[in-house]
Computed example of a mutant assay.
Amino acid sequence: MSPLTRNEQLHLDSLEEIKNCPLLESTCSGVDLDMPLGNILPEEYDESWEGVRFSENMLSCYLRFYELGAAWGAVEALPDISGEFNLINFHDALQASDPGTARGKTDFHREFLSQLCPIDRTPRSGAGSQTYIRMQAGVDELELWYSAVADIGQPPYPPGFIQLDIDYCEYLRMLLLTKGVHGWQYLFADISLDRRDFSDSANNLTNMLRVFPDVFPGRDYSSIRARLEDRL
């Protein structure tokens, strides 16, 4: 197996933290490596992606794992908290079917949906949330979009999708902090969690910030705490 990059080692170490934490019940997976991102040409997967390029930033932080993921929940002695992530390598992501182009109500909706490729999902818990990367030519950094079974999004984009204000590398860094706690992506979206239909996500994030600083000492959760306070 090729030597791991520093970022790959950080994410394997984070996965081990989840596995070995006695306060979390978890199921984890992922070790084998796939091709580097630099060897992947988007137009070979879809001719409409001609001109889409991965930034140097993405090339430097990309994780080559075929799959890397965990689903976990806190033991009964702790406040109710759970999470899941399942990172998909881009070779598979670019071959995945788009999230329902046929259901697009306008030409813009259909084009937008055809540009989305899943990079993170929640198959074990069935939470129904996914994070996508948007395959667009001529942009410095490819956008990230989050989809969930919730009333999110705004025109002209189709309902159920909301853009994240972080890039791919920042997304990976936040996974090291949050361990994929359900709803963490809302911290990086233009949305208020002070709504009845978001109470579960707000409680999950609040409990995460009560528990994680003690469970995973040495990590700085101040930025996460500030973002949550801004949305409550």
Rank of each mutant, 00 (worst) to 15 (best):
T5F: 04
R6C: 00
E8D: 06
L10P: 01
L10M: 02
L10C: 02
L10Q: 03
D13T: 14
N20L: 11
N20W: 02
C21Y: 12
E25C: 09
S29W: 13
I40N: 02
E44W: 06
Y45F: 02
D46K: 10
S48D: 00
G51N: 03
R53C: 03
F54W: 06
N57E: 14
N57M: 09
M58Q: 08
Y62Q: 06
R64F: 01
F65Q: 07
Y66Q: 00
L68N: 00
A70R: 02
A70T: 01
V75Q: 00
E76W: 00
I81T: 14
S82P: 04
S82T: 06
S82E: 03
N86M: 08
I88N: 09
F90L: 07
A96F: 09
T101G: 07
A102V: 07
K105M: 14
T106E: 00
F108A: 10
R110S: 01
L113G: 13
S114V: 09
S114L: 07
Q115T: 13
D120S: 15
T122W: 04
P123R: 08
S129I: 15
Q130I: 14
T131L: 09
Y146N: 09
D151Q: 03
I152V: 14
G153A: 15
P158D: 05
G160T: 04
G160Y: 04
I162Y: 05
Y168K: 12
Y168M: 13
Y168E: 08
E170A: 11
Y171I: 01
R173W: 05
L176C: 10
G180D: 04
G180R: 11
G180L: 00
H182P: 12
G183C: 08
Q185C: 09
L193M: 14
L193W: 00
R196N: 03
D197F: 14
D197T: 06
F198K: 12
S199E: 04
S199N: 00
D200K: 15
D200P: 02
N204G: 13
L205G: 10
T206A: 12
T206Q: 10
N207E: 03
D214H: 08
D214G: 03
P217H: 08
G218Y: 08
G218F: 04
G218R: 07
R219Y: 14
D220W: 11
Y221Q: 07
D230P: 09
